Computed example of a mutant assay.
Amino acid sequence: MTLSRRQLIITGAAAALVVPATARATDIRRNVSSFAMQDWRDHFSQLGKASIVCDTESRALHFWSGDGSDYRIYPTSVPKTDELTKRGYTEIVRKKVGPSWTPTASQMERFPDWKPVAGGAPDNPLGTHALYFDWPAYLIHGTHDTRKIGRRSSDGCIGLYNEKIAELFELVPIGAQVRLI
């Protein structure tokens, strides 16, 4: 069977319309940005003061307000390797605008030329705001390097665009529960 040029174009156009619709129908738990949707009930028994799930697979942070009326998803950077990724339950114990940064001991072993950076400095790897966990040296923070968002690029922390961490900072109370998956 031979197809004319016109038949080939029509067949190709029809296939182009059917394939995306079929692909969308196969995964209804994904939104337009490809982040896996989350339900807080899959992670916590109650919302508490507020709840955060950091999904290192889809590289997204999910936030729910304490009364459940506000649900937001933020794109994130995640740890470079599984060895740097801490998973489990924690909580927000401190918040800081203009955080200063000091390399950890393991970072100094790998990168001996790294030096501490003052809060508010344009090259500060913690960006403009930070939310600290009750795990030492792990936090949610901003970044000035927007190329990192959506990638495996951190040494263990969860990074957000500076404007998004500023927004989240205002929403999250001390004591908010957090789960890293």
Rank of each mutant, 00 (worst) to 15 (best):
W40G: 01
R41H: 13
D42I: 01
H43S: 13
H43T: 03
F44D: 04
F44I: 06
F44S: 04
F44K: 03
F44V: 05
F44H: 03
S45K: 10
S45V: 05
Q46K: 14
Q46R: 15
L47Y: 10
L47A: 12
L47G: 11
K49H: 09
K49C: 01
K49T: 11
A50Q: 08
A50E: 09
A50H: 07
A50F: 09
S51C: 08
I52R: 01
V53G: 02
C54Y: 01
C54G: 10
D55P: 07
T56G: 00
T56H: 00
S58F: 08
S58R: 07
R59M: 15
L61H: 08
L61P: 06
F63Q: 05
W64G: 11
W64Q: 13
S65P: 14
S65H: 14
S65R: 14
G66H: 14
G66I: 14
G66V: 15
D67A: 12
G68D: 03
G68T: 07
G68S: 06
G68Q: 05
G68H: 05
S69Q: 08
D70S: 05
Y71K: 11
R72S: 03
T76W: 04
S77K: 02
S77W: 00
P79T: 11
P79E: 07
K80G: 01
T81G: 09
T81V: 05
D82L: 12
E83M: 00
L84N: 03
T85D: 09
T85C: 11
T85L: 14
K86V: 13
G88R: 11
G88L: 11
Y89G: 02
Y89C: 02
Y89D: 08
Y89M: 09
Y89L: 09
T90F: 09
T90G: 02
T90Y: 04
E91W: 01
E91N: 04
E91G: 01
E91R: 12
I92R: 04
I92E: 08
I92L: 10
I92T: 07
I92M: 09
V93W: 02
R94G: 01
R94M: 09
R94C: 00
K95A: 12
K96M: 13
K96I: 15
V97F: 07
G98W: 01
G98P: 00
P99V: 05
S100L: 02
S100Y: 08
S100V: 01
S100D: 13
S100R: 10
W101I: 08
W101K: 12
T102A: 14
P103T: 12
P103F: 08
P103I: 10
P103V: 08
P103D: 10
A105I: 03
A105R: 10
A105E: 13
S106P: 00
S106R: 07
S106H: 03
